[in-house]
Nucleic acid binder design. Structure first.
Lengths: 342, 342
DNA sequence: GTTAGCACTCCAAGCTAACGAGTGCTAATT
DNA sequence: AATTAGCACTCGTTAGCTTGGAGTGCTAAC
């Protein structure tokens, strides 16, 4: 069976009506929403075809139709008219986001808040990735007799620290040795190279000081690792409660979001032109089979860097939200570019 | 009407049975759980008295009895026998918690995880408070032409940092001035003294460099403020979903927990001997009127320092969980004392 | 003071009927 | 050949009703 212009119009009308109301859409309702006049019987025939083609589903025999994953997909890829944002709106959004200017973490947090508020969804954001980052600076601050703070600053602007307890008292020599080793083995090194292997050879080369110094370098390597996997921020989780159709799965979704790793996986999906939409069962996590995820990447100084995303019901107002996400990721990218390079 | 030993036994049995099963307790059920034999009619009479006295409630005329807030309170204060923890258990708990040794944040996070797992509740923890902490160290790390990381380390071991964008290019002089001003006005100063007033006089005294330098000191003061309000960690939020009786209020509770301020308020309540239990309507937040909060403070080197808490339904196994909380806060205090002072 | 007995209350679960929205099909119409 | 009116049919939802059982409060006897 072939797709016809009329079928497309009907499909679009079903999707839009369902997005608006959340109720299955019947043939009579649809009559009032189409820009051409046909009888409900005709619409029923067409809808039956669309069901057969896999674009619509019916919850039960005597109910209206609901878009399937495939239906949403077709709508988004071919039928949807993105809503233009008006000037006032975009300016006010930009102002809100820009209030987090200065510190990347603060900025992304702010952006997440804004997104969560605008979309009534859970917002996830990643900090600029540190993939090609290297060690810019390492500090060693004694806190007590046997404890020191080890601090790592990367070229991507990430700062990580850890308190670390050694087995021997810390002396002035300890501090000096730390900085000497850092200068020789860490400073300027890409984070990726600081792995267990590198660490082992380093410890071996420490000779008699290995026992004294190794805890601190182990800590430093830990920090490098943490800095490498870009942090994910989560905002507006509780918005999920506002969507009736998710009610049953909110606990499962939250459980999924609690762990960092699935989150970064979700966000790393952004491919073509920085925007990616995963609808319902297109998601690899089955907890999200009733949800949609919209991810938009942002670029800092021209290279792909991090991403903003939302998680909500499949029944999202894509025509409105997709432009939002693109706009906000643009703003974030712009502000970060200004902040980090200048 | 007076409390009698028999009434006390009946109250305790009702509370314990209800905690165990979650079902209202009837007079017949109770017969089997008391260590003396009386008829169900007698128990009914006594229970009617307990209702009148405010210790029990009945959901409706023909249902069993449920403990009221007052009933729980009486049980916890006068009737409860704390369960002893067995050796194996306490050792394994201590080992789990101790795996976070080294870094305070990591430790408290670990402790929160352990608590959440053991209690099936949401766990909240605070890092050691920085109340009397002072500025131990400040660092200024240029990241780009106009942006620098400002880093603050307190004597309590808290490390905070912020990227900060100035209005003028950063030069070697900027850096030197920063450290000079820090040495003169920040190092060694109690965090509490670094407020807006102090900042204003400082900026005034900067003279011609005010414009160039003030953003960094504003950032530094921000950091001091952040370090002052002790951070709160939240673990096992999703455990709340496991309690049927909370189902309706989980969204409200999560919304409450999302904000930092109510959290620290909850935790700061711990008074007498470090342990505090707030039952149902005893909580000042109405979202928690069906929940109980158990808070146990921990001490670092003898002075009250931070707290661990759980949030769950009123129907908590207090006799088991209170010892847990006391034990874990003891472990946390011990480990932190070792780490921070030595 | 305690207990057996009994009438009473009230929730929960299951059943039925009425309803209404929406469908699929058929036969008539354009 | 496509469209439409008409109609019987399906199925979920809601309301009302019944039944069963758990538990109570009261009274009278012990």
């Amino acid at each position: 069976m072939d797709m016809t212009p009329r079928k497309e119009k009907i499909l679009a009308a079903v999707v839009e009506s369902f997005i608006r109301t959340g109720e299955p859409v019947g043939s009579k309702t649809l009559m009032g929403e189409l820009d051409f006049r046909v009888s409900s019987a005709t619409i029923r025939n067409e809808m039956a075809d669309l069901v057969e083609m896999g674009y619509l589903e019916q919850p039960h025999t005597s109910a209206g139709r609901v878009p399937s994953t495939l239906g949403y997909r077709y709508y988004i890829d071919k039928l949807m008219n993105k809503l233009e944002m008006n000037k006032d709106e975009s300016e006010s959004i930009e102002k809100s986001v820009a209030s987090g200017r200065g510190d990347p973490e603060q900025l992304l947090e702010k952006a997440g808040e804004v997104i969560a508020r605008l979309t009534n969804c859970a917002a996830i954001t990643t900090l600029p990735a540190g993939e090609q980052a290297c060690v810019r600076r390492a500090e060693f601050v004694p806190v007590s007799n046997r404890t020191a703070m080890v601090v790592l600053l990367t070229s991507a602007g990430t700062l990580k620290s850890k308190a670390c307890r050694g087995d021997m008292p810390i002396t002035q020599q300890t501090v000096e040795r730390f900085y000497a080793v850092c200068a020789a083995h860490f400073l300027g090194k890409p984070l990726e190279e600081i792995g267990t292997v590198m660490l082992q050879t380093l410890v071996a080369s420490l000779g008699e000081y290995a026992l004294e110094m190794s805890p601190y370098f182990v800590a430093l390597a830990d920090l490098a690792n943490e800095a490498l996997k870009s942090d994910v921020l989560l905002e507006g989780q509780s918005n999920l409660f506002n969507h009736r159709e998710l009610s049953g799965s909110v606990p499962d979704i939250m459980e999924l979001l609690r762990k960092g790793e699935p989150l970064s996986k979700l966000l790393s999906a952004g491919e073509k032109d920085g925007l990616n939409v995963k609808i319902g069962t297109e998601n690899e996590y089955k907890q999200l089979s009733n949800s949609s995820v919209i991810v938009s990447r942002y670029n800092v100084n021209g290279s792909r860097s991090g991403a903003l995303g939302i998680i909500g019901p499949t029944r999202l107002n894509y025509a409105k939200l997709i432009p939002y996400m693109q706009f906000i990721s643009g703003v974030v990218g712009k502000i970060l570019s200004e902040t980090l390079e200048d």
